[in-house]
Computed example of a mutant assay.
Amino acid sequence: MSRTHRSDRLFVVLNYVFLCLTFLIVLYPLVYIISASVSDPVYVNQGTMWLFPRGLTFEGYQRVFQNPEIWTGYRNTILYTVGGTCINLLFTIPGAYALSRKDLRGRGPMMGLIVFTMFFGGGLIPTFLLVSGLGMLNTVWALLIPNAVSVYNLIICRTFFQTNIPHELQESAEIDGCSNTGLFIKIVLPLSAPIIAVMALYYGVTHWNSYFNAIIYLKDRSLYPLQLILREILVQNQMNDTMLMTGDDMEAMAKQARIADMIKYAVMIVSSLPVIAVYPFMQRYFMKGVLIGSVKG
């Protein structure tokens, strides 16, 4: 009996050790980037700064935020993230609920057509021509409408409704004289808070990190999202470092490389900090959504 208890305790200890090591492995890159963003690049490049900051400096952040386009990018990205997520939820949640209803005629063929688009798409050029033909080129709508629904997220929502909203609940609501719209708004939506939070997180992170569509569809710099502006800052510093310096100006080249290194780590923190701050509050919903999609999808 005592041997069994001893083996159980050993198993628990090993589990904690493994989890602690995994936590440190996952946490270290984040701590390193934060420390590198406020450290002198000389210590970072030499490898002497491996955990805590050395040669504390905030010059990288100062140079990033001195650029007025950063604040414009923040404003645009918040607009795209909030507005785009609302549009995504407005189309995804009702569509998934409708496809989860057994009494929807043609549900199978419609779902087949939707899933077909996951594997076969028109491509970049036809999509660009469509966006241009609809008059959305170089507008906010070019970043919001073409990606209004994700088929993967639609399937997750449909699975949630099928497995968590009993059909008997729908029947009892119909007996009480509740319409389909009333059923969806008054009963289904209040019971769907977890999946709505998951979808908001999925779509929100996608909008926050997106920059490719902005490269394709936007020409006006006042509409650029934050990620595109930060990308330009990094590319510009790399070009200045490698192309605009001459062999006779080694001191200026070294200074430019030092500034580029500081900006590089500062940009990583500036672009990811809002998502990192929001994620802990959404984590439990996020895990539930992953479980729904993987186990019951």
Rank of each mutant, 00 (worst) to 15 (best):
T206V: 04
R101V: 05
H5I: 10
V290D: 01
T181M: 10
D241E: 14
Y61W: 08
A254D: 11
Q62L: 12
E251D: 13
S2F: 12
P274D: 05
P126D: 11
P29L: 05
I195K: 04
L291H: 14
R107N: 10
E171W: 11
Q236V: 01
N147S: 14
I34G: 03
P280W: 15
I165C: 07
V149H: 00
Y279G: 01
V270F: 07
M262C: 04
E69F: 12
I70T: 13
L79P: 00
F116Q: 07
R3I: 09
L189T: 03
A266L: 07
I145F: 10
L89M: 09
L228P: 01
L226A: 07
Y224A: 03
R221M: 09
R9A: 15
I263K: 02
G121C: 03
S271V: 12
P146C: 10
V205I: 15
Y43T: 14
C86Y: 05
G108T: 15
V115H: 07
V270R: 08
A214E: 06
I87G: 02
T85I: 03
R105G: 00
Y61L: 05
V26Q: 08
M250G: 02
G121L: 02
L56N: 02
M243V: 14
Y285M: 06
S192C: 12
F286K: 09
M136T: 04
A173Q: 06
R107I: 05
Q236E: 13
K255M: 13
K264H: 10
W50V: 08
L79H: 00
V12I: 15
R101N: 04
G204P: 00
L79N: 02
G297W: 14
A142Y: 01
P126G: 08
C20I: 15
K219I: 01
W50A: 12
W50G: 00
G83E: 00
Q66D: 11
N153V: 07
V44N: 06
R258T: 15
K102S: 11
G95Y: 02
R63F: 04
F52C: 01
I93K: 01
I215W: 04
P190F: 11
I114P: 00
Q62T: 11
I215T: 12
D220G: 04
Q170E: 14
L30V: 15
N164I: 05
D248H: 06
V270H: 10
Y80P: 01
Q62F: 08
S272P: 09
M118S: 03
L144S: 03
D248C: 01
N147Q: 12
V151F: 07
I195D: 07
Q170C: 04
L14Y: 08
Q236N: 13
L183S: 03
F281N: 11
F128C: 02
E59F: 05
E171R: 13
L134E: 09
T4F: 05
T4A: 09
L143M: 06
L89W: 04
S39M: 09
M287G: 00
L124H: 08
R158C: 11
I156F: 13
T206L: 03
I33N: 09
V82P: 00
